[in-house]
Design a protein around this nucleic acid. Sequence first.
DNA 1: AGATATTTGTTCGTATGTATT
DNA 2: TAATACATACGAACAAATATC
Lengths: 258, 258
Amino acid sequence: MPEPDTGAAAPMPSRLSAILKRRKRPDIIADKVRDMIIAHRLVPGDRVPHEWLLPQTHGASRGTLREAQKILEIQGLTTSKTGPGGGVFVSRVGADQAIRLLDNLFVFQPPSIADIYAIRKELEPLMAASLAGKLSPDAFAALQETIRLYEDEAKTVEEEYAQRLAELDFHVELARRADNVLLGFVCIFLVSLLRDMTTCRAIYQEANPTLRETGLNYQIRLLRAIKAGDAERAFQVMREHMTAAEAYMLERAEIVRG
Amino acid sequence: MPEPDTGAAAPMPSRLSAILKRRKRPDIIADKVRDMIIAHRLVPGDRVPHEWLLPQTHGASRGTLREAQKILEIQGLTTSKTGPGGGVFVSRVGADQAIRLLDNLFVFQPPSIADIYAIRKELEPLMAASLAGKLSPDAFAALQETIRLYEDEAKTVEEEYAQRLAELDFHVELARRADNVLLGFVCIFLVSLLRDMTTCRAIYQEANPTLRETGLNYQIRLLRAIKAGDAERAFQVMREHMTAAEAYMLERAEIVRG
DNA sequence: AGATATTTGTTCGTATGTATT
DNA sequence: TAATACATACGAACAAATATC
């Protein structure tokens, strides 16, 4: 039998992580394609050469190759378009897309509010300080726009809830502008955890005019410090804000639960 | 041919698919199954009911359903076993598995060494302090075992490299034990970023007996503080360690590059 | 130990939908 | 509008793995 290689030509895993356990063919192929993309310096928007995804290139079937491609797509590295001129393209992985991949991580071991704020208290001030004097005018405009959503007192629970989400969005908008993209990513991740937590959702629906006002106060002071290029003050303001927010959340969580 | 109804569920008319944007069938099915798992409060180890993955349940073919299952598997939410009594099971997603999903996040915007250490300097001390007086005897044993890998001076570049990786593993082992699973996860993530960075790999291969010795010194002092339940000292030791490590890495990176 | 039944994993050929030209 | 190039979906057949008898 000619046996056109079919599997016997099991590709030697190039990555060091492959030692751990026997990986399946689609995984190996996906890694191979990923390495090719990186090696050839493809950037988002570039087309992934058709040959790289050809079954015979890897000695696998279409289905297997399709699964490999699925892996890359799930990881956010590629997207595919139909039609002529269509195909598989490299795409930039967005922070929110990546965060969704982590959704499953904490389903069975959800972190507590204290857990989240323990980290936020450290990182948010750091991020705020790093932004001092570096925000563009339209960044300020976007942030002001976010603040505007909770300038007035909420009339309904839905409005209350929307305002609290807008407060969180303020932090996301800030984090998006951070020079340190890693720091920005982690901060956004923490916010998204808060947003999805059921306990928090319960708390966010409670009316609390005082909190809104002091929150607003923090944001304004923060923006002023950032605009003035005063890193130290931005740090302090954000730190106070986080400490106050944590205290409030923990207190309310206690009440909501009991 | 009976042509089993195909009236309501199966065909997915073009108008409906237009409303649902470009979401593909396997993705939709995967989400549906994921929601079912969460709604039914399934926990890791539980079997995913066979019916949920039956083609006719979703009006799709076996291939499509397999792809949906593949998505869940890639996301780490399920594993599958062959054979009688086999099937698809809910699984706890590990930190390392989740981190691999993020591999692609920073390929086009790689964070710098300074970026990573800016966060590590804050979080690693926090984590170390939280561990004070809380480590079990066999946790200590595991950590000691990791240290043993670089007790003696490396003879070859490979050995040198392996030792540096072991140093990183020490931090992973610590983070794995953190009460704050979120904090632990972020710390492990940062370490894995360091491990995969090409610049770091280059640095790690350089021989540096002094660094190894001082590093060893830090680890021992750290373990002692943790064992003594002295959170404050554990914090300080780790902070010094991080500061020193960052300074070294930045210095070497400058030289390696130039 | 070995055969078998059960369940997942892989592959092929083909059909269908969709966006570009 | 028609042609076409490409991804996506289907279903059947085959292969591999594994618990049970």
